[in-house]
């Protein structure tokens, strides 16, 4: 594998290992809970970047994958007594398949029309689930405590789930790298730059973007399953929280859309920033405002984000990191 020779590959492996080992070795649960949030953000941002950054389609409703993954997992574990591993895998595959079918339809729309449709899809699913009794309607699904027993009790289960989430994070980053360096990625970039030109050059755009959409659903769905399993419950408002979708866009833009490393850095910084704001009294209510200002500033003054800016002043960095 040529990927093994890329410095970035080992950087990703290293970062993932740090995420896993830091709280584990110090047995620090507070640290773990902070990092789990970062990891989730990184997963959401990195996968969203496959659409926004690589393919050029703004998906406002990417959170729907995360939420559906959570619901499917908790439903399989809670009501059907599946094990966690098989449940999240099935959730990931089903959500991805669903995204493929959905993508065939809504990816015929371009630009603003597509973006609007993705909001519509998320809201429709949220409202549907809120009315869907099998999944507990607006009450959502609660896991019985016994669900953790199979994994050696709640304390141990939470550690296992944490490590799994970190694993999904690492996989997301590797996926971003692998796609970026592949023929598939080249086709996506061509679509992003000019879909009509790409099609004339031979890129099967309808298939490619649908695949990208479907692919960008897989790991977030698994992450959703793990995250809500860890929480022990899932409700529509949290699972399909459009704000989180939007924050994911802010992260992608902050770090630099279309770059491999940008969204991760953006997600990490955003999580830190948000955490800081939450602890400053009086500012905790303002985190959406600050996210909004941040997004606006990036769009107006640095549309390439942090990495875009770095690459501009230091082009050689691009060779190593992209």
């Amino acid at each position: 594998m040529k990927l093994l020779k890329a410095p970035l590959f080992w950087l990703i492996v290293g970062v993932t290992a740090i995420f896993a080992l830091l709280p584990l070795l110090s047995n620090n649960i507070t640290l773990r809970e902070t990092l789990v949030l970062s990891a989730i953000y990184i997963i959401l941002a990195a996968n969203l970047n496959l659409m926004i950054g690589y393919t050029g389609y703004v998906n406002f409703g990417s959170i729907v994958f995360f939420g559906l993954g959570g619901y499917l997992t908790l439903w399989l574990v809670g009501s059907h007594h599946w094990g966690l591993y098989s449940a999240v895998l099935v959730a990931g595959v089903s959500v991805s398949a669903l995204a493929f079918l959905l993508g065939i339809g809504i990816l015929r729309l371009r630009g603003a029309y597509f973006a609007l449709a993705t909001i519509g899809v998320n809201e429709a699913v949220k409202d549907f689930v809120s009315n869907f009794d099998v999944w507990g309607g607006s009450e959502g699904i609660f896991l019985p405590f016994t669900a953790y027993k199979a994994m050696g009790g709640a304390g141990k289960a939470l550690w296992t789930v944490y490590l799994l989430i970190v694993l999904v994070m690492g996989s997301s980053l590797l996926l971003s790298l692998a796609v970026r360096r592949s023929k598939f990625g080249l086709g996506l970039f061509a679509i992003r730059e000019d879909e009509d030109a790409a099609v004339v050059l031979g890129v099967k755009a309808p298939l490619y973007k649908t695949l990208a959409y479907s692919l960008s659903a897989f790991l977030p769905a698994i992450a959703g399953g793990l995250y809500f399993f860890k929480n022990g419950s899932v409700v529509p408002e949290e699972a399909f929280n459009l704000n989180l979708s939007i924050e994911a866009i802010v992260m992608v833009m902050l770090g630099g859309q279309g770059t491999v490393t940008g969204p991760t850095i953006g997600a990490f910084l955003y999580e830190r920033l948000r955490g800081m704001l939450l602890t400053i009294p009086g500012l905790s209510n303002f985190h959406m405002v600050i996210a909004g200002v941040l997004l606006l500033l990036i769009i107006l003054f640095a549309p390439g984000g942090l990495m875009g800016w770095l690459y501009r002043i230091w082009p050689r960095l691009r060779r190593v990191l992209e």
Binding site: R181, G187, E193, D194, L201
Partner: peptide, 30 residues
């Protein structure tokens, strides 16, 4: 070719041409 040129702006010249080679009749690997 297009009368009104359609370069893939944010990609290098090499990448632009690679797209043509990759997805043409020969369906070459990257």
């Amino acid at each position: 070719t297009h009368q009104i040129v359609k370069p893939l702006n944010e990609m290098t010249v090499l990448e632009n041409v690679t797209v043509g080679a990759c997805f043409g009749p020969q369906n070459l690997p990257l």
